[in-house]
């Protein structure tokens, strides 16, 4: 049968969808899934169009990192070694570590303040999974890596918001 939640094909008689885990036995009792629900369970991280992150080396002085964040218009940089993410440094990390001491600490390497290891996602992960990782970890950015662990992009909570807005709009279309 076709999963009413995410559209995946399942063998007849299985209890839970192999792709999204929603119960199939109760599906006839549930309301039809909304466009947002279907999307979160069926769509993959790659539909969020992961952007190129600002990348710095672990020994970059943190004052240069702050400047790179401002110039790059981002609240997050990926700290990488040989194109593999080793940590993430965000504006929240900056605030919690420096507050009024920013000038005194500016020469220290970003590796002293970054969150490590970096949580990562693969492009095949479901959007629902990305949302859950962000919610549980309190992250607003998660690097996306390829099969070999190489940095392939970054998604932000802003991408999630844009995605939800698009899906909510679809849900309001007549006949959908």
């Amino acid at each position: 049968m076709t999963c009413p939640w995410c559209g995946a094909d399942n063998l007849d008689g299985v209890d839970d969808c192999v792709a999204c885990g929603q119960s199939l036995s109760d599906a006839h009792l549930s309301d039809p899934a909304t466009a947002v629900e279907r999307g979160l369970l069926a769509d993959h991280v790659r539909v969020l169009d992961p952007q190129d992150p600002v990348v710095v080396a672990a020994d970059t002085p943190v004052r240069d990192v702050l400047r790179a964040m401002i110039d790059g218009g981002t609240g997050c940089v990926v700290v990488a070694d040989a194109n593999r993410p080793v940590g993430v440094f965000t504006e929240y990390d900056a605030l919690m570590n420096f507050d009024t001491d920013a000038p005194a600490l500016g020469g220290r390497p970003v590796s002293d303040f970054m969150t490590a290891p970096a949580e990562t996602l693969e492009p095949d992960a479901k959007v629902a999974f990305a949302v859950q990782r962000m919610a549980v970890g309190g992250y607003r950015h998660i690097p996306v890596v390829g099969a070999g662990g190489e940095l392939a992009g970054i998604i932000s909570v802003r991408d999630i918001l844009r995605y939800l807005t698009d899906r909510m709009g679809e849900g309001r279309e007549p006949g959908s």
Partner: peptide, 13 residues
Amino acid sequence: LHFLVDHFPATVY
């Protein structure tokens, strides 16, 4: 995000 996560059963994740 938590509101969305709580909507789905834990098996999804």
